[in-house]
Lab assay of single mutants.
Amino acid sequence: AQASVVANQLIPINTYLTLVMMRSEVVTPVGIPAEDIPRLVSMQVNRAVPLGTTLMPDMVKGYA
């Protein structure tokens, strides 16, 4: 199964992502692939992302 990117903490709206904020986990539904974690660093979330939430492409500015 493919691992997705999951929030490792509460990520406030407009926060620039860093490695410590994200982890990879096999979840349903599938979100942003874990292999894209390096690409996500320094990208901004466009909403608050609670701890344990799967990151979806529409949550990250400029990802989709």
Results as ranks from 00 to 15, higher is better:
Gln44Phe: 06
Met22Tyr: 02
Ser4Lys: 01
Leu10Glu: 14
Met59Lys: 02
Met21Phe: 04
Arg23Ala: 11
Glu35Phe: 11
Val41Ser: 08
Pro57Trp: 08
Thr18Cys: 03
Ala7Pro: 02
Thr28Gly: 11
Val20Gly: 15
Leu10Pro: 13
Met56His: 09
Pro57Arg: 13
Thr28Glu: 09
Gln9Pro: 00
Ile11Gly: 00
Glu25Leu: 10
Met59Ser: 08
Val20Asn: 15
Lys61Glu: 12
Asp58Val: 15
Ser42Asp: 11
Val5Arg: 00
Arg47Ser: 13
Gly31Leu: 01
Asp58Arg: 07
Ala34Met: 04
Ile37Gln: 05
Ile32Gln: 00
Gly31Pro: 01
Thr28Phe: 04
Gln9Glu: 12
Pro12Gly: 09
Ala1Phe: 11
Ala64Thr: 12
Glu25Phe: 05
Leu10Arg: 07
Val45Ile: 13
Ile37Val: 07
Tyr16Arg: 15
Arg23Tyr: 09
Asn14Arg: 06
Leu55Ala: 00
Ile11Glu: 00
Val27Gln: 07
Ser4His: 01
Ser42Arg: 06
Gly52Gln: 04
Asn14Met: 11
Pro29Lys: 05
Thr28Val: 10
Ala48Thr: 13
Ser24Asp: 15
Asn14Leu: 07
Val20Ser: 14
Ser24Pro: 12
Pro12Val: 04
Met43Gly: 04
Val20His: 14
Pro38Ala: 10
Val30Cys: 03
Val30Ala: 11
Met43Tyr: 10
Met59Val: 12
Thr18Trp: 03
Thr28Pro: 02
Val20Pro: 13
Pro38Phe: 11
Ala64His: 06
Pro12Glu: 14
Lys61Tyr: 14
Ile11Asp: 00
Val45Phe: 02
Leu17Gly: 00
Ala48Asp: 14
Met43Asn: 08
Tyr63Trp: 10
Arg23Thr: 06
Leu17Glu: 00
Ala34Leu: 05
Pro29Gly: 04
Val30Gly: 09
Asn46Thr: 14
Pro57Glu: 05
Gln9Cys: 04
Pro57Thr: 04
Gln44Met: 13
Leu40Pro: 00
Val60Arg: 00
Ala34Ser: 14
Glu25Ala: 11
Thr15Tyr: 09
Leu10Gly: 09
Gln44Ser: 11
Met43Glu: 06
Val49Glu: 01
Ala34Val: 06
Ser24Cys: 03
Val60Gly: 01
Pro50Arg: 11
Val6Trp: 02
Gln2Trp: 10
Gln9Asp: 11
Leu19Gly: 12
Met22Asp: 01
Leu19Phe: 14
Val20Lys: 14
Met59Arg: 03
Ile32Cys: 03
Gly62Asp: 12
Met56Val: 13
Glu35Ser: 09
Ile13Ser: 14
Asn8Arg: 12
Ala34Ile: 11
Ala48His: 07
Tyr63Ala: 04
Arg47Phe: 13
Leu55Lys: 00
Glu35Gln: 14
Asn8Ala: 11
Thr28His: 14
Val5Gly: 02
Arg47Gly: 08
Val26Gly: 05
Val26Leu: 14
Ala3Cys: 03
Glu25Gly: 13
Ile11Arg: 00
Ala7Leu: 04
Met56Leu: 06
Gly62Glu: 07
Ile37Asn: 01
Val49Leu: 13
Arg47Ile: 12
Ala48Met: 15
Pro57Leu: 10
Thr18Leu: 07
Gly31Phe: 02
Tyr16Ile: 05
Ile32Asp: 01
Ala1Glu: 09
Thr18Glu: 13
Ala64Pro: 14
Asn46Met: 09
Pro50Ala: 11
Asn14Ile: 02
Ala64Gln: 15
Val26Asp: 10
Gln2Lys: 10
Asp58Ala: 09
Ile13Pro: 08
Val30Ile: 13
Gly62Val: 05
Ala3Gly: 12
Ala7Val: 06
Ser24Gly: 15
Val41Thr: 08
Ala3Phe: 14
Met56Pro: 01
Asn8His: 06
Gly31Asp: 01
Met21Tyr: 11
Val6Asp: 01
Ile13Lys: 08
Gln9Ala: 14
Ala64Leu: 14
Leu17Thr: 00
Ile13Phe: 08
Val5Thr: 13
Met22Arg: 00
Tyr16Phe: 11
Ala1Gln: 15
Tyr16Leu: 09
Ile11Ser: 02
Ala3Val: 07
Thr18Ala: 11
Met21Gly: 03
Leu19Asp: 10
Thr54Ile: 11
Thr15Asp: 13
Lys61Gln: 15
Pro12His: 08
Val27Trp: 03
Val30Trp: 10
Arg47Cys: 04
Asn8Ser: 15
Gln44His: 04
Glu25Ser: 08
Ala34Glu: 09
Asn8Gly: 10
Thr28Arg: 09
Asn46Ile: 12
Leu17Phe: 03
Pro57His: 14
Ala3Tyr: 14
Ile11Val: 05
Gln9Leu: 12
Lys61His: 15
Arg39Lys: 13
Ile37Cys: 02
Ser42Val: 04
Asn46Trp: 06
Pro57Ile: 05
Thr28Gln: 14
Gln44Trp: 05
Thr53Cys: 03
Val30Pro: 14
Met59Asn: 05
Val45Pro: 04
Thr28Lys: 07
Met22Glu: 00
Met21Ser: 12
Arg47His: 08
Gly31Glu: 01
Gln44Arg: 12
Pro12Ala: 12
Tyr63Cys: 03
Leu17Val: 07
Asn46Pro: 03
Ala3Met: 13
Thr18Tyr: 04
Gln44Val: 06
Tyr16Glu: 11
Val45Leu: 10
Ala7Ile: 06
Ala1Met: 12
Met21Leu: 11
Val20Met: 10
Ala1Trp: 10
Thr53Tyr: 06
Leu17Tyr: 01
Val60Tyr: 01
Glu25Pro: 02
Leu55Asp: 00
Ile13Asn: 09
Arg23Leu: 08
Met43His: 10
Gln9Phe: 10
Met43Val: 05
Leu40Gln: 01
Val30Glu: 09
Val20Ile: 09
Asp36Ile: 14
Tyr16Gly: 13
Val26Trp: 08
Gln2Arg: 12
Glu25His: 13
Asn8Met: 10
Leu40His: 00
Thr18Asp: 11
Gly52Met: 09
Met21Arg: 03
Tyr16Lys: 07
Val49His: 02
Ala34Tyr: 07
Asp58Thr: 11
Pro29Met: 04
Leu51Val: 13
Gln2Ile: 09
Val27Glu: 02
Asp36Arg: 07
Pro50Trp: 06
Val27Lys: 09
Leu40Trp: 01
Leu51His: 10
Val41Arg: 05
Leu17Trp: 01
Ile11Lys: 00
Val5Ile: 15
Val60Ile: 14
Ala7His: 01
Met22Thr: 02
Gln9Tyr: 10
Thr54Gly: 03
Pro29Leu: 05
Ala3Trp: 06
Val45His: 00
Pro50Glu: 06
Tyr63Ser: 05
Val41Met: 06
Ala48Ile: 14
Met59Pro: 00
Thr15Phe: 13
Gln9Trp: 08
Ile32Gly: 00
Leu17Ser: 00
Thr18Ser: 15
Thr54Ser: 08
Met21Gln: 12
Leu51Pro: 14
Tyr63Pro: 05
Arg47Pro: 02
Pro12Asp: 06
Gly62Gln: 14
Met43Gln: 10
Leu17Gln: 00
Asn46Ala: 12
Ala34His: 06
Gln2Ala: 13
Gly31Ile: 02
Val6Asn: 02
Met22Gly: 00
Ala64Ile: 11
Gly62Leu: 08
Asn8Thr: 13
Asn8Pro: 02
Ala7Met: 07
Glu25Thr: 08
Val49Tyr: 02
Asp36Asn: 14
Pro12Leu: 11
Ser24Met: 08
Leu10Ile: 14
Asn14Cys: 03
Ala48Phe: 15
Ile37Arg: 09
Met22Pro: 00
Ala64Cys: 04
Pro29Ala: 13
Leu55Asn: 00
Ile32Lys: 00
Ala7Cys: 03
Ala64Trp: 04
Val27Pro: 02
Val45Tyr: 01
Leu17His: 00
Val30Arg: 12
Asn46Lys: 09
Asn14Glu: 11
Gly52Pro: 00
Ala1Asn: 13
Asp36Trp: 14
Ala64Arg: 02
Ala3His: 07
Val45Trp: 01
Val27Met: 05
Val20Cys: 03
Ala3Asp: 12
Pro38Tyr: 12
Val6Cys: 03
Glu35His: 08
Met21Ile: 03
Gln2Cys: 03
Asp36Met: 09
Gly62Phe: 10
Gln2Asp: 08
Gln44Ala: 07
Val60Met: 09
Ile32Ala: 03
Val26Ala: 15
Asn46Asp: 11
Gln2Met: 15
Ile37Pro: 00
Met22Phe: 12
Ala64Phe: 05
Thr18Lys: 05
Ala48Cys: 04
Tyr16Pro: 10
Ser24Lys: 07
Met56Ser: 10
Ser42Cys: 04
Met22Leu: 07
Glu25Cys: 03
Ile13Ala: 15
Thr54Cys: 03
Asp58Trp: 09
Ile37Glu: 03
Leu55Arg: 00
Val26Gln: 15
Pro33Ile: 08
Ala48Leu: 10
Met56Gln: 11
Met43Asp: 03
Arg23His: 10
Arg47Tyr: 09
Leu10His: 15
Ala3Thr: 08
Val45Asn: 04
Glu35Lys: 07
Leu51Glu: 09
Pro38Val: 07
Ala1Pro: 14
Met56Tyr: 07
Gly62Trp: 08
Val41Ile: 13
Val20Glu: 15
Asp58Met: 06
Arg39Trp: 05
Val27Tyr: 02
Ala7Asp: 01
Pro50Val: 06
Met56Phe: 11
Pro38Met: 12
Val26His: 08
Leu17Asn: 00
Ser42Tyr: 06
Gly62His: 13
Met59Glu: 03
